[in-house]
Write a protein that binds this DNA or RNA. Structure first.
Lengths: 314, 314
DNA sequence: CGCCGTCGTGCTCATATGAGCAGGATCACC
DNA sequence: GGTGATCCTGCTCATATGAGCACGACGGCG
């Protein structure tokens, strides 16, 4: 009886979803009462035979968002659908767009927004629309005077977000990582730098991404770390970095000495914030994303479906 | 206005399909009237943002079946869904199952059923249930005394279909292809063979598959043709074979001399039948499937979604 | 053999949804 | 600036669907 009911529910589903027949019509066709048809359809859904997908770059996965909030204790979660995505770039774009949307809809509008920099942040800045806010002051939360070929990306990110939000940007004029601890301490005690960091600490909200601990890292690209530095970090358990600080899968600093030479907000300062928005997407970042969420580095997470499911698996 | 409506329709779809909210509730959430929500949802569907799939081995694609009937003039078409299929074997199995289902449901039940043989037919015979019919006589319609390692597969197919249908099988005791024309003529004039072919001509319905013209062909495997024979046929335009007869993309015999040495029903005899059921599935058979349907070799086609779409493309 | 619990069935009634229509805003064109 | 066509909106009303319930069949168990 179960076998035949299963088949009937499939036949009914075909007529209902593909042929747009009413349950009554299906009943006539299959010689069933319309109530039976309704039950078969409910069964088909419940057993997972029916899959409904929303195919759109802006589509989100609300049930997964809910699970992230409930099971991972996030204040909010934005999960973009991966349906129909073929390239990592597309995924990245969808996520950046979603982050921009989230910022735009954010109430109350933060007066001061602390931001990190990197590929993800840059893309978010590009997806924001002019007038997304009125009068947001943007402040960099980690060092970012860029050494690489595309100088000013970090600056362009912060400035872009600020301009489109009708405010101004405060840049942190410092490298991300210094070679010597003494230099780092010296630079942090510089009046301007200290002032910027102070401002960063007072931000209403933070927006940052995370990097994977691999050779494509922005730190390698920017010249702050060498390929072998990264290898060593991985050796020590690093899964990625947040605002330039490398963490292991529990969210702990992997290399305290290195960390001491890194300029910007500390991770605990980030954790203390009531509104820390992390934007992390892509296969390569599953491990960091997990560390970020587990160790409470963010209160809001913007990510993709595959990454979200990875977080919920463990 | 269109941009924003599109976004709204996606938000509405998320709430409707993923969160099971009513259109009214969605209206409250998005500050819209419920009629507007209904229209947005309709729009999302109509623009193709909503994809509903039935994930089940027995699922069929009724809209595609309809198109095949209407645009390709078939009496009937059965198209199995490819959703969730990963291997060609799985596809083959689904299609065989569907063919078995079709036979089982066929009314009026044919008294005499002509069948070919091959991997597909064998699988269909395995998927049929005992008692699928009461008293069907099965007759082979093309030569099939097997030369290969698995002798009797052809016989097992016909016998299996007959036994499960409560009838008996009549085998055609002849090779598929003879080496010399004279031998073929001699064997066809044999009283028994002639009788079987006569019976085959009188069948109420035919069930057959088609083979691709490649090195995996059953004819190569059985030793009736060599690999180079097949290459030559392909050279001459062959896309595959039906009941052992190789055809080009228009359904015409590719090599009349070879055809004359092939034992069994002719293609025109098949075309004349009011109920000729072809079962053809898989990427490799797209070209033959096309030839079969275009040249009217079958009145009923059982196939998979990808093949069906290929047929409808041209 | 009879009893009771369980399950599936077909109903009533409440609710959700879709079709069709009238009024009003918008826009191009005169 | 007037005027008509067009589109959009929010309605009424008909229909489709889902929730809950009472009945009867079935099967296990005393």
């Amino acid at each position: 009886m179960d076998e035949i009911d299963e088949l009937l529910s499939i036949r009914a589903a075909e007529l209902y979803y593909e042929e747009n027949k009413t349950q009554d019509e299906i009943g006539q066709a299959l010689r069933l009462t319309r109530w039976k048809v309704g039950r078969l359809l409910a069964q088909a859904k419940q057993r997972g035979f029916i899959r409904i997908e929303i195919l759109h770059p802006r589509a989100r996965r609300l049930p997964i968002e809910r699970r992230l909030r409930e099971e991972r204790g996030l204040t909010d979660a934005i999960v973009v659908s991966t349906a129909g995505v073929h390239t990592p770039e597309e995924l990245q774009e969808r996520t950046a767009q979603a982050a921009a949307d989230y910022l735009t809809a954010l109430r109350p509008v933060p007066r001061t927004l602390g931001v990190s920099w990197g590929r993800t942040l840059f893309e978010i800045s590009q997806h924001l629309r002019s007038g997304w806010a009125t009068g947001v002051n943007v402040v960099q939360i980690n060092g970012g005077v860029s050494l690489n070929r595309r100088p000013g990306t970090a600056a362009a990110t912060a400035v872009g977000i600020a301009q489109k939000g009708g405010g101004s940007a405060t840049l942190l004029p410092s490298p991300a990582i210094l070679e010597r601890l003494a230099t780092k301490e010296a630079i942090e005690s510089d009046r301007v730098v200290a002032g910027v960091i102070e401002l960063a600490r007072s931000a209403d909200a933070y927006l940052f991404s995370a990097g994977a601990a691999d050779h494509n890292s922005v730190h390698v690209e920017s010249g702050y770390l060498s390929v072998s530095d990264v290898d060593v970090l991985v050796q020590k358990g690093a899964v990625g970095d947040v605002v330039g600080r490398y963490i292991d899968s529990d969210g702990n600093i992997v290399d305290p000495a290195l960390d001491a030479r890194t300029v910007g907000l500390t991770l605990d300062e980030l954790r203390a914030s009531p509104l820390a928005i992390a934007v992390v997407a892509g296969q390569a970042k599953h491990a960091v994303a997990d560390a970020v969420v587990r160790s409470g580095l963010c209160s809001v997470l913007v990510t993709d479906e595959a990454t979200a499911l990875h977080l919920l698996d463990g």
